[in-house]
């Protein structure tokens, strides 16, 4: 994505919604049997929000996250991301939109084991064709911000869960994304580490980054500004405590 387009999408998002869905439906076919994964999902997420999708396993939150992450497409309904209608985009267009605009944080950290901490964080910048000098300064800034500069030469297998996830977060934010998608970011961590990660996410959100987090932990969900509860593919409640 060129810098112009990037700026343009940000301004669209500020004017409009960061994420906007209407009657979003996902139907999965298993042989002859159809199953509704998501039914008539209507969600609006504004720029700068920290929204949590809360629900048990199989509720459909990961499917919704996959659509927000432009990995999956809805069966019907509308999905607008950063002002773009992404419902019927081609694969190449989805990659272009994803690259540089969406940061992903995974439950199992998703680090590449052959790369050290610095290189893991640097990787998305390489795909965005930043020059070496810019990459260096951006990665150094992120390492510094997350207080993991001393780990930059370490390989993932030398790190504990908390630090792995910090690197995962670092890699997601280094591109300064419009949206940060975090799928069960504390799922593989103990409660202490989990709290620490939630603090970091909060501080990122404070800097203005929109965050959508999926979790089944009501505790973690509490740290978000808004909770969207999902059950069997339906949105059942919207808690808007922080808006009030």
């Amino acid at each position: 994505m060129s810098e112009n387009e990037h700026e343009c999408s940000i301004s669209d998002a500020i004017e409009g919604k960061m994420i906007h869905t209407r009657n979003l439906t996902k139907i999965q076919r298993y042989g002859g049997i159809e199953q509704n994964i998501l039914q008539n999902v209507n969600v609006d997420i504004e720029a700068g929000e920290f929204v949590c999708l809360l629900g048990p396993s199989g509720s459909g939150k990961s499917s919704l996250m996959n659509m927000f992450g432009l990995i999956d497409t809805p069966t019907s309904g509308d999905l607008l991301m950063m002002g773009h209608d992404v419902t019927n985009l081609k694969e190449r267009q989805r990659i272009n939109l994803r690259r540089g605009s969406i940061g992903n944080i995974f439950q199992s950290f998703g680090l590449i084991e052959e790369l050290n901490v610095f290189e893991n964080i640097e990787l998305p910048l390489q795909y965005l064709k930043y020059n070496k000098q810019t990459r260096y300064s951006k990665v150094t800034a992120v390492l510094d911000r997350l207080n993991i500069t001393h780990l930059k030469k370490y390989y993932p297998k030398q790190l504990d869960g908390l630090h792995k996830q910090l690197v995962g977060i670092g890699r997601a934010i280094v591109i300064e994304p419009d949206i940060l998608l975090a799928d069960e970011p504390t799922g593989c961590l103990n409660s202490n580490s989990g709290s620490k990660i939630m603090e970091v996410l909060n501080s990122i959100n404070e800097q203005g980054t929109t965050i959508v987090m999926a979790t089944h932990s009501a505790n973690d969900a509490d740290k978000a500004q808004r909770i969207v509860q999902i059950f069997d593919g339906h949105i059942i409640t919207e808690n808007i405590k922080n808006r009030l």
């Binding site: 990995i71 190449r92 690259r99 995974f106 590449i112 591109i175």
Partner: peptide, 9 residues
């Protein structure tokens, strides 16, 4: 998969 999500074409 990770590389694709991070932006690899």
């Amino acid at each position: 998969a990770l590389r694709q999500l991070i932006g690899a074409g």
